[in-house]
Nucleic acid binder design. Structure first.
Lengths: 116, 116
DNA sequence: ACCTCCTATTGACAGTGGTCAATGCATCGA
DNA sequence: TCGATGCATTGACCACTGTCAATAGGAGGT
């Protein structure tokens, strides 16, 4: 009979908290890079549009007109969000479909969670 | 007899949510200004130090050494946090004591709250 | 192969932001 | 009143960032 392998579920996948204890420089830099991605109105609108999309996916071309920004600018912001892990892109034919990474967003949300 | 005036209590003091519905430009700008205040490692460390302070207050002079930044730089970041409503300062004698505005921080946290 | 369409990258520009030295402004004690 | 102390402001510098026009890359269609 094979040995039973037990994998410990990492319940604390979560990032450091701002409110729990003083952050060191590297923890703070890590978190700040996440909030930097959120610190732009265009990118927040991108996230909100993705969150509200019925299929959970939005084509790049469908961002341009609602955001009122040029196509290169939209592509620029999507790249920043992608590098921050907040969205992911999937090329299908000529189009690239972006979707929200809710886990990554929840990590940043948890970093602001009040401690009991 | 005077007319009865009914004031509706605003139960939703809270800011717009990123995940509920697409944000318009002004809502996004409002939220982005909040996250901009969080988008710096020095400021995140300021907030975490304030959150961990036993008395809930920290003197400006007590930030300088832990942060490893000059006094004008610390003052600069405190001003940004103050203008964002995240901290408040109270002058007592020669010293200015800063404290955390947890409600304002909770507002930003709520903006990232997953919708059911 | 060629053309068309969608997306990404480059380059340039103006605006913003973090940093510190120097200085100004209070407050307190002598 | 004077000097010392704590904090804020100014000015300057450099790095970063948002924006768009122009261009490149890639995938289909004819």
């Amino acid at each position: 009979m094979a040995k039973r392998v037990v994998t410990i579920e990492p319940t604390d996948r979560c990032c450091p908290s701002v409110l729990a204890s003083p952050l060191d420089a590297s923890q703070a830099a890590e978190l700040a890079s996440g909030f930097t991605a959120l610190a732009d109105p265009v990118r927040l609108r991108v996230l909100s549009i993705l969150a509200a999309a019925p299929e959970g996916e939005v084509c790049v071309c469908d961002f341009v007109e609602p955001l009122g920004k040029s196509q290169p600018t939209v592509s620029h912001h999507l790249k920043i969000l992608s590098e921050a892990g907040l969205v992911g892109g999937d090329r299908r034919g000529k189009w690239v479909w972006y979707s929200l990474n809710r886990e990554r967003l929840a990590d940043l949300q948890a970093a602001l969670q009040p401690v009991e």
